[in-house]
Design a protein around this nucleic acid. Sequence first.
DNA 1: TTTTACTATGCATATGTATGCAAATTGGTT
DNA 2: AACCAATTTGCATACATATGCATAGTAAAA
Lengths: 355, 355
Amino acid sequence: MFFSIQVYIFVFEFMSKSNITKKHYTSHDVAELAGVSQATVSRVFAGNTKVSEKKRNQIMEAARKLNYRPNAHARSLITRRSMLIGIVMRTIRNPFYSAVLEIFHNRFSALGYHLIFINSENEHIEESEIHKLLEYNVAGVIISDALLTQDAEERFRENGIAVVIFNRYADNSANSVVLCDNYLSAKQIATYLLKTGHRHFAYISGPPHTSISQDRLRGFREVLDENGVSKLHLEAGDYTYDSGFQLAQELMMNNKDIDCIFGGNDIIALGVMDAIRNLGFDVPHDVSVIGFDNIRMSNWTSYNLTTWEQPLEGMVDNTVAILLEEINGKIGKPKKLVMKGRLVIRNTVRNRNAG
Amino acid sequence: MFFSIQVYIFVFEFMSKSNITKKHYTSHDVAELAGVSQATVSRVFAGNTKVSEKKRNQIMEAARKLNYRPNAHARSLITRRSMLIGIVMRTIRNPFYSAVLEIFHNRFSALGYHLIFINSENEHIEESEIHKLLEYNVAGVIISDALLTQDAEERFRENGIAVVIFNRYADNSANSVVLCDNYLSAKQIATYLLKTGHRHFAYISGPPHTSISQDRLRGFREVLDENGVSKLHLEAGDYTYDSGFQLAQELMMNNKDIDCIFGGNDIIALGVMDAIRNLGFDVPHDVSVIGFDNIRMSNWTSYNLTTWEQPLEGMVDNTVAILLEEINGKIGKPKKLVMKGRLVIRNTVRNRNAG
DNA sequence: TTTTACTATGCATATGTATGCAAATTGGTT
DNA sequence: AACCAATTTGCATACATATGCATAGTAAAA
């Protein structure tokens, strides 16, 4: 340890905290003040029944005076539905998922929903977390990580809660799924690398047992095979910088001929770039690097990473739309929505067809 | 636009979704099956009254059979408290706050609380978001951003909801506050830069109207003044890479003598480094750079940023502890808890005392 | 066995809102 | 003015749990 960490506390003698046990007003209070029945107040705030303009105004005025807000728990209790959405992630520290969370929040907030945020530390969702979401009668759940196991999904579905999976696909899932077309993306990436004259390929993927990794590998290999490239250096990382750095370092030291590396996400690719440079090589002169996600950092001057952009906003929009449909009872067959992305060309892939 | 983004949908004919309107069991059902009263079931699950071992077992057994879970809304309705905590942030895309969110989630999850995540896009919290949190009777709220304005805090306090402010301090707040000692940190940073022979200082801060920026500036200036350095190039960024890059570029082009730049957070500092390098200068040979936060990226090989580490885990632990105290009614004077961090020395500050 | 003291349990009710049904009001038509 | 249809409103109840109070149950003491 460096310096010892110390703490010091000041206690200020500000105004003592307003311990006013402020009366909590209910629809009955509003009704009384407005001279109507509680039912009518309820109808105004629920908003799905007609109330005369005159009484509505009286009620709104009274509600304003009392600073009335309907009690969400009472409402959820009787309607058996809440305005809460569970969103389950695994690695919020991954900038891609930070962006995902931000966008989901924007969308759901605009619709009046609130997000209950769950971050799993490993590959399954804690039982206690599932229970809590069930107890709170969440309207729906979004599971957004490549790694989370499937048992949790079923728990929600068993309990009649809508679930949409974001960014992962497992064939036997009974839930709708929204994701980027990993197979096609990998094909296009491989095509681009071949077109720019690369012949010695390495791919540092995410964990190999996920659909994402498998689809990409399949697409990547297919194109290589079609073009007579049989050798592919394959390593499995875990979507972290360190794994990218470590594996690229090993690859480069053991295989001097590698001329391009495809990283399973941008963070891996950035680690790859740093490892390559650290060994004294130049990107893209000696080795080309290509990533996946197009996170903000890939655009930083130090990296300028060529990468694949996932249509994040569109993916989120569709996920929200599907979830809302299911919440509103239009339960059909599970949908699989596969969206294309696009190649973002920056400066980490060199055209080796010189001459 | 590059490629047009397209979408295609498959609808699979899996098992049609289990539309089983599964009966939702209540404490009455459990009571009946266990041969006791509903009240006793409630007592078992509430956990704050004694129930005989025998009946407890009968009840747990019955609950297991029915897969019973208490309804959180009914519970919150009658107890007037929920196990929900609102956590308000402004820029979840900032890696520092991603880490903050992750740690808060870990802590509260272990305590049985759930996090309602709110991300504000600008400097105030939307009224609708505040309302929703109030409607859901959140047990407490953590406001975690340097920029969020103060009116929201008061709304919560007015409604008897505990609030703790994380990482910001305003003198007239009636709420408890946990933060890093920005004043002292800035002093130590300035001292370190002076000790290593720097004489021409620049500071690219966050938005200037926040306590964080002001405290740091005060500390930084104080040490410079004490050491006879009167000139400080001061620019206000907004905690983004782009602002760091932009402002550093301008600074460097207009002031060739600057020999060190202090960034208001690591993201700014990384932008600063890239700008310096982009102009053909070397870090730290020509210019030293120092950051604040010690986010993971500052340790990346490309940067290796010397920075100030905030004691994040400790700050979170204390925030949680204070919030719980207030939730449990031990409402005393608002506390101000100021924690020290430590300097993390890497490779972006050069010792200019050569010879 | 009876009395006492204490604990465990059940009864009844409260929490705040939504909604089916019946009653009341409104407005238009004759 | 009277009637009818259509709309608005109120009454009463349900949602699922927690808890004060009274009572039943148990064990210890006399």
